[in-house]
């Protein structure tokens, strides 16, 4: 599994590629946690994954908690409908910020 990372307007945009499951969650976790240590403004783009399992959702929740505690911002973007439905079932749509795309997410970073 590959995790891409880019900087756009001072925001770190992380794009996991492929499957975010138990066998790849550690790579994803290391990438997002390192990014969060370096910059409190993080967007994760979900347009390049096949699916995210509970192991991946755990990482997103951990990151959300970490950034909330440090007054950072996390916005989830570019989520295909099937991925969004998994976040919704988990109740994560109520505790995490989800935007259609990067342009809509930008103002949330202040």
């Amino acid at each position: 599994m590959e995790v891409k990372s880019a900087n756009d307007s001072g925001i770190t945009v992380i794009t996991p590629m492929g499957r975010v499951d138990t066998s790849t969650a550690k790579v994803f976790e290391d990438a997002v946690m390192a990014a969060a240590d370096a910059n409190g403004k993080i967007a994760i783009s979900f347009d390049s994954i096949d699916y995210i399992s509970s192991a991946g959702l755990r990482v997103v929740l951990m990151l959300g908690k970490k950034l909330k505690a440090s007054n950072g911002t996390l916005v989830l973007i570019n989520m295909p409908e099937k991925i969004f439905s998994v976040f919704k079932m988990s109740g994560f749509d109520k505790i995490l910020k989800i935007c259609a795309n990067f342009d809509e997410a930008k103002p949330l970073f202040g």
Binding site: S54, L61, K94
Partner: peptide, 24 residues
Amino acid sequence: DPITSLDIEEREIGGLGIFLVKQL
């Protein structure tokens, strides 16, 4: 099942897998 209505600070990390399977 995990309690999905909690705030981010209270949500437990983990326990979602079987819950998702039930939903799907």
